[in-house]
């Protein structure tokens, strides 16, 4: 069984990103190929802001997801429209919008919703965390 995760809950206003992290760790521990990818949509795209600095005595959720991507080669996609409207821009998008900085954290990629549709059609189950 291979899963795609759709995360829509804000990392600040919900536990969606936290719960999904626990799920993905458990799934990968059981089966290394069990996750096709993770798609962040709505306020969940805020996870990909590399400027966010959580207090040192709290979990660094962005780093935790980056560790998953790096260790298990799981792609982390942010919906490009949802991300750009919230100020999460890649290097190429920052040039397109003539912005002085980019804010997309390493190991996250901006993709359109069409990528989510592809993932829906190529995995057994998609699970939403909201």
């Amino acid at each position: 069984m291979q899963y795609t995760l759709l995360i829509t809950g804000s990392p600040y206003q919900s536990k969606a990103c936290h719960t999904a992290l626990r799920f993905i760790r458990a799934a990968l521990a059981k089966s290394p190929n069990s996750i096709k990818g993770v798609f962040f949509y709505e306020d969940a795209v805020l996870i990909g802001n590399h400027l966010a600095q959580p207090p040192r005595d709290e979990i660094n959720l962005t780093q935790a997801w980056q560790d998953i991507a790096q260790q298990h080669h799981v792609p982390l996609y942010l919906c490009i429209a949802a991300a750009v409207r919230r100020g999460i821009v890649s290097d190429s998008e920052s040039k397109r919008y003539e912005l002085p900085h980019h804010t997309l954290a390493e190991h996250f990629q901006l993709e359109g919703l069409g990528t989510l549709v592809d993932m829906m059609n190529s995995t057994h189950k998609i699970i939403q965390f909201r």
Binding site: T8, E42, D43, A81, A82, G112, L113, G114, L116
Partner: peptide, 12 residues
Amino acid sequence: LACKEGLDLALV
């Protein structure tokens, strides 16, 4: 934005 982004996903 939830309603709008849900509709956007439906349209895509």
